[in-house]
Design a protein around this nucleic acid. Structure first.
Lengths: 337, 337
DNA sequence: TTGTATGCGTTATCAG
DNA sequence: CTGATAACGCATACAA
């Protein structure tokens, strides 16, 4: 491991003080054009990169924004990608604070704060409002996607209620009358979306029917079973795309045609919504195995003193699902399509 | 913004030196049980959290592992979630270095290095091998998912070739003879998987047919069109799940039944593979808009001196796709299912 | 325009 | 077992 190049190394290279080099590196006014050029050249030659920890410590600014997200959500991921580019444009860097089943939001926030993030973006937060308000006193917080009733907080969100209302009207316009809504868990967003459904149904003089549901594909599957076991609606709206995708998949498994027999609506326009498929036969990448080995290797390198290299190869496993089956009879090309 | 609690504040609270408190906080041996208890209590009471920047600077260790991933890939996301938990168990924290179309891998790596990551995990890296070797001299690097022919590098990967071979054999076992392979772009992984296909086909005495393709759902769609315009195979294997999902979706749009008319195989077992659906009608979350507003608000708070709170509400938009259409005739419950 | 001195919050060494 | 004290790499008044 070669030693890191420091400001001092660059200063020595060009025969200047660290202070001057520092000013050049962060574009501060003062240094002459000639000095700037020489310093930049030397820095480049030496491969100098400022140390964020030291910089943050000295300047009391990290120029970093923390983003808490559910990394498994394609919608959140898409948001994060966008924010990455946008933050870049205003001269900030983004730090991702992933929220998972084993790492709750509070933990993600703490970690981000420990890294001296100057502001926090909370995507789809589920934290209690008063906690968010308290947090906001430490550092600017912007919550994305959730209404914050009566709280002094920055919020960026969609009009959930109108969104669902519009969706309902779309369905009514197509001729639907029996429209079921499958709500999410008891968060603010779920309430808003349900309200939108109820409002539009009421305005059309239709009877609302709301079922309990969830936000994951699995929840959607359960919802499909519930719906199929009763009198079928002609259309179903779900809390989000994830649930809708699971819902549709289960319908297909039951031989129900979408939209032939039942129309389905989602929410989010996540990348998921742009594609559809039946369950796929595939080769499983053993995620726990890959992970374990990777971190074993790191542990060995960092703490175990290993200096040789290793390669770990994990045996693959085919997972057979419904996208494969016995072949159909050969068929000729259909030039018309 | 209330000032951060420092080590010194805790020391003052319990009447000890910073050094002693520091030892307690990081569990170093030395302090008496009584001291530990008092310090911990005080730290908790004051809400003290160690400053990572300072800690990293002083200790020359960040205890952070950088992970470069394609955040939009559900497979990568799943891997990252796992790694998060695993890193935690060995006392490290993870820093995510997202790679996007606007932020290449080199950039992600630089950023992670600037943050003093002690090791790097590169998921599905596309960087040239010599660059990775050079990088590995600065900091331990583990590449995940790609073979590194003849390079001195830590690698964790699946046996891609065998995986595809097994998949081909599965199809042959079902009775398939005309099996097409749609390969990814020209990276090592694509070559390995294609080799697996060719080997299995040769072993069965079958004629291989390989088409150019890609790794995204869009690529899958294009591949579907290409496949449908020629003599149909009874089974198609694609480079990964993303492509397969797009492929199947396009088939469905063309009225082709999967697996009734064509069997399809993917690779990765990403969450995507576990669900399937037709293209979904949904409410679009205006991602660019949400992002822009969020960062505007942050910019205002950090650099614009804003102290009041604002709420930005964006108008929703329904995106109609194929999961909604005219309703079917009402139907009675089917108690059997 | 450039250099000097000091501090940022921790860690770590070395006395006591 | 505990307390000074010197780094860590950089930023920033202030002086030259």
């Amino acid at each position: 491991m070669t030693r890191r190049i420091r400001l001092e190394d660059v200063a020595a290279e060009v025969g200047l003080s660290r202070a001057s080099v520092s000013m050049v590196m962060r574009g501060a006014p003062g240094p002459s054009a000639d000095t700037v050029e020489r310093v930049l050249a030397a820095a480049d030659r030496l491969g100098y990169r400022p140390d964020r920890a030291a910089s943050a410590l000295a300047s009391r600014r990290s120029r970093m924004i923390g983003v808490v997200l559910e990394v498994r959500s394609t919608f959140h991921a898409e948001l994060a990608e966008e924010m990455l580019a946008a933050a870049d444009r205003i001269g900030y860097d983004l730090l991702l604070g992933p929220r998972t089943p084993h790492r709750d939001e509070a933990r993600a926030v703490e970690s981000l704060l420990d890294s001296r993030c100057e502001a926090l973006v909370l995507i789809g937060t589920e934290a209690p409002v008063d906690r968010l308000v308290a947090l906001d006193r430490q550092v600017p917080v912007v919550t994305v996607g959730r209404r914050m009733p009566g709280a002094e907080l920055d919020v960026v969100r969609l009009d959930d209620e109108s969104g669902v209302s519009e969706m309902v009207r779309h369905l009514i316009g197509l001729g639907h009358r029996r429209i079921t809504y499958v709500r999410g868990h008891d968060v603010v967003i779920a309430a808003d979306r349900e309200a939108g459904y109820r409002r539009a149904m009421a305005e059309a003089g239709l009877e609302p029917l709301v079922l309990a549901g969830g936000k994951d594909a699995d929840d959607g599957v359960r919802s499909a079973r519930a719906v199929l076991s009763g009198t079928w609606p002609t259309a179903v709206l779900l809390f989000n795309d994830q649930a809708a995708v699971g819902f549709i998949a289960e319908l297909q498994r039951a031989g129900v045609d979408v939209p032939g027999q039942v129309s389905v609506g989602g929410f989010d326009d996540s990348p998921l919504a742009r594609m559809g498929a039946v369950a796929l036969t595939t080769v499983r990448q053993d995620v726990p195995g890959l992970t374990r080995h990777t971190l074993d290797l790191i542990g060995e390198r960092l703490d175990g003193g290993r200096s040789t290299r290793r390669e770990v190869v994990i045996p693959p496993e085919v997972v057979v699902r419904s996208s494969t089956g016995a072949p159909a009879a050969p068929r000729e090309p259909s030039p018309g399509r």
